[in-house]
């Protein structure tokens, strides 16, 4: 197992499409959880969330989400976040169309 620690990412929904996005340092958004920047420091978490909330014309509803930091990128630690990062299970829609 390459689990190292419980860590966080900043996630939100795209204002225009509603798609789930993740913050990638320094200041871009990615639809892929695996490419999100993992934050392991509380001050940085606070600052990153503030940065996200300061982009009301790009994203909606930003929050910090727990992840498991693995060698091939962060994975959601809760099933709700896992579904957000993958898309619905009944159709290959959303991120599964990529």
């Amino acid at each position: 197992m390459s689990v190292t620690a419980i860590s966080k990412v900043v996630t939100a929904n795209d204002l225009r499409s509603g798609e789930v996005l993740y913050l990638r340092f320094p200041h871009s958004w990615t639809p892929e959880l695996a490419r999100a920047s993992v934050i392991k420091d509380n001050d940085l978490a606070k600052a990153s969330l503030a940065f996200a909330q300061g982009q009301p014309n790009a994203v909606v509803g930003a929050y910090l989400s727990d992840v498991i930091d693995k060698s091939d990128g962060p994975k959601a630690s809760h099933f709700r976040e896992r579904f957000r990062s993958t898309g619905p299970s009944n159709y290959r829609h959303g991120k599964q169309e990529l």
Partner: peptide, 8 residues
């Protein structure tokens, strides 16, 4: 119009 898990 709602904002749901993956989209509006």
């Amino acid at each position: 119009l709602y904002l749901q898990l993956h989209a509006y």
